[in-house]
């Protein structure tokens, strides 16, 4: 019993270290994603890992991504892309905020649709992978 009492504060401290490290790492990743990624100018849509289409962000358009029964309605407006509506049950993709930064993406898991923003020239080498 005595030993347990002594051991507790050390574990508590370790917990704090773990929580601190996790939050710090996610903060770093968030800052990296926020500041070191410029604006993108095209959106790439993939269904089941295969490219469905690539669209320019500068042009307003509405694209229906259809795969059998499933559909996702992608809207590009004012340089941002968002999911207007979708057939998926959870609606996570629809509630996702509009994306415009390089590397940002909207994922619709049930329909296996991924919408990703990328910067000019898909062929440009991305040294940070």
């Amino acid at each position: 019993m005595n030993e347990r009492k002594k051991a507790f504060p050390a574990r508590f401290r370790n917990d704090m270290i773990l929580i601190g490290v996790l939050l710090f790492l996610s903060l770093c990743l968030a800052l990296y994603l926020f500041f070191f990624r410029g604006k993108g100018d095209t959106v790439k849509v993939t269904v089941d890992g295969e490219v469905y289409g690539v669209y320019a962000l500068s042009e307003d358009r509405t694209e229906e991504i259809r795969d059998g029964e499933d559909y996702n309605l992608l809207v590009i407006r004012n340089g941002r892309a968002y999911m207007e509506s979708a057939s998926c049950p959870d609606g996570i993709c629809v509630s996702h905020h509009a994306i415009h930064r390089d590397g940002e993406s909207i994922v619709c898991l049930p329909n296996r649709v991924v919408v990703t923003v990328s910067a000019e020239g898909d062929g440009a080498p991305d040294i940070i992978s």
Binding site: I19, L22, L23, L25, S26, L29, A30, L33, T46, G49, G103, E104, S105, V107, L109, R112, V114, T116, S129
Partner: peptide, 27 residues
């Protein structure tokens, strides 16, 4: 799993959100 299923690596944003929320929920 999502990366494998969707064959994409662009899920960094979800990692940030889910790490923070996972930490809070875990506490």
């Amino acid at each position: 799993t999502a990366m494998l299923v969707l064959e994409t690596v662009e899920l960094g944003y979800y990692l940030v959100i889910l790490t923070v929320s996972g930490t809070v929920a875990g506490i």
